[in-house]
Design a protein around this nucleic acid. Structure first.
Lengths: 242, 242
DNA sequence: AAGTGGTCTAGACCACTCC
DNA sequence: GAGTGGTCTAGACCACTTC
């Protein structure tokens, strides 16, 4: 098929799985048999199996063999940046307040605060064409010796610099749900207390220490929220080349 | 470090990236240099680089070298099944109607209908403890020669059998947004016309032919919707072994 | 022409499973 | 003990980039 041997082997095995000749849980031929079958060396066979494994088609059990996976139909992927991927572009960021506060029990636990530590709470309103789109509460551990760079908080993505430099050791957890707006949120979003808003909670985590760097509650008006996700395998073939 | 050579090399390179000795875009030492540096054969070095590539740390350009990736901070992953991952368990499925209908332009295009083809529309109400949780509209291309298996439609996940057998050639695209309930949805969900609901649109696609197998609009009451997603690399190490 | 990564081979030894 | 996958080596030839 293809000019590259291991890719043509990948294609043949994949076809066997897609056409139903192998079913989930079935054992593939042993690597020794495939060497004869495909006329390739062991390393080439294993390169093919490695690719198929990355794409979620097969897995292996040492001492036993290679097997067809039970596929994941409920795993989705999406790109999402709460400042860039709403239905309208964020054109203005209003810094409402920056305060040092006592933390409630929830935030104490979330940010792993020590006894006397306080939190820094930032409130911002995000607008598009002059209309409120979202309101957010950002919480950090308050470190008395570090200056608060208010200038930076005026940019939509205030963590941009941090993300660029430390991205390899950052992880984000996101939770999306519907919520009933409280008085403050309802007032700023002009939707009224008791209206339904979408709440995005985001934790930024240091993946080495597991410490929570920041915790954000982001309230969006429902009409501006849109998320597109897809289930897909592949991607292992396309090495990021720029 | 580790007992396995290629993993210890992965660890050392990863540390260099995490500690900032290499920055995004930087070129790594050539494979020949790494062979000396780590005292390993070329294939072992390349195995390490392949792992790092799968985990999103490095990429390579033939003829030039291996480079540190610009990390993705906005890529999220989540497991989600609209019948299993709501805030309450779906205990009852009410089949409201099964109809053969003319398709509007949107559905004609979506399902790639031919001239005279019609659609099969299924309406269902999903309940928990007797309370409405979600209402959905499922659209298929109507095939006159195939019987409609109403029995199957009474199970929450009516596609379960299809997903099990053809999962490797299925893809799902999902879109989540806020929407204003129309009269029908508002009535069945008992939230009233004009109330805010979460709308999940799901396309099930044959990944070989790109044909849309089914199109679903799923309306959930905001209080029952919850989605948890995470950005993460890793996963390439943990081969699915059962 | 020299250096780079991409593909491929033919071995080797190991730990593991199964009988 | 025979068979399996897991790791590793020391080569080879290729296409590509850079000078």
């Amino acid at each position: 098929m293809g000019e590259i041997l291991y890719l043509s082997i990948v294609g043949k095995i994949k076809e066997s799985i897609l056409k139903g000749r192998y079913k989930p849980g079935d054992m593939l031929d042993s690597e020794a048999m495939m060497m004869k079958e495909f006329g390739a060396s062991r390393m080439t066979i294993r390169k093919s199996l490695s690719l198929l494994s990355n794409e979620g088609y097969v897995y292996s059990i040492p001492g036993k063999g290679n097997f067809v996976c039970t596929p994941e139909t409920d795993l989705f992927h999406f790109h999402f940046n709460k400042y860039e991927d709403l239905a309208v572009p964020i054109e203005e960021v209003k810094l409402l307040s920056v305060r040092v506060r006592e933390a409630d029990d929830f935030l104490k636990k979330k940010l792993s605060l020590k006894m006397n530590e306080k939190i820094l709470e930032v409130r911002r309103l995000l607008l598009s064409s002059g209309n409120p789109v979202a309101m957010e509460f950002i919480f950090f551990t308050y470190l008395p010796n570090q200056p608060v760079v208010e200038e930076r908080l005026k940019f939509a993505n205030h963590l941009e610099g941090i993300e660029r430099n430390f991205a390899f050791s950052l992880e984000k957890d996101v939770e999306i749900r519907g919520e009933i707006a409280n008085e403050v949120v309802g007032r700023y979003l002009a939707s009224g207390e008791g209206s339904i808003v979408f709440c995005l909670e985001e934790e930024v985590i240091n993946s080495e220490t597991r410490a929570v760097f920041s915790f954000t509650r982001f309230y969006v008006l429902p009409r501006y929220f849109l998320l597109k996700a897809a289930s897909h395998r592949e991607e292992a073939n396309s090495r990021k080349i720029f």
